[in-house]
């Protein structure tokens, strides 16, 4: 049996999680203080995911860039590709918080949404 120690990143509590593994199988998870921690530990072992937060270029708005994020976490290994995808687009006002900037990015089933309003200059 192998023990893997993780720090939960779901919330700032940063629970120290211990995952006991038998081969590729999870046998036990301890140390979480909420259900999200349990889910995080499972995901982190099987298919780690991250929320991507970044900016995209904008034109004719009050700011030259708009902040965006993936609405849900996406597979960790796709983060690099996703930022490259997002570097290719340019937004124009009006943009409202929550507007979808890219639908279903890299076929993850997850949308990228704006996290800031963009007004015309």
């Amino acid at each position: 049996m192998v023990k893997r120690e993780l720090t939960c990143i779901v919330c700032p509590n940063g629970c120290r999680l211990v995952v006991e593994m038998e081969g590729k199988e999870i046998v036990n998870i301890t140390g979480y203080e909420c259900k999200r921690g349990l889910k995080y530990a499972e995901d982190e072992i099987i298919a780690p995911k991250r929320t991507l937060t970044t900016i995209v270029k904008a034109e004719m708005g009050h700011l030259p860039v708009v902040s965006v994020r993936t609405k849900e976490p996406i597979p960790k290994e796709l983060i690099g590709k996703a930022v490259l995808e997002l570097s290719k687009i340019t937004l124009k006002p009006p943009i409202n918080v929550g507007d979808i900037v890219v639908k279903n990015i890299l076929d993850t089933g997850v949308d990228v949404i704006a996290t800031r309003n963009l007004y015309s200059k």
Partner: peptide, 25 residues
Amino acid sequence: LQQCIHNGFGLIEFKEELSGPEYAE
């Protein structure tokens, strides 16, 4: 908050994980 575009805001307040600008908004 307007420049803190990363997530992790609002878990206690809104039970959601928001970015800084969203929390401010």
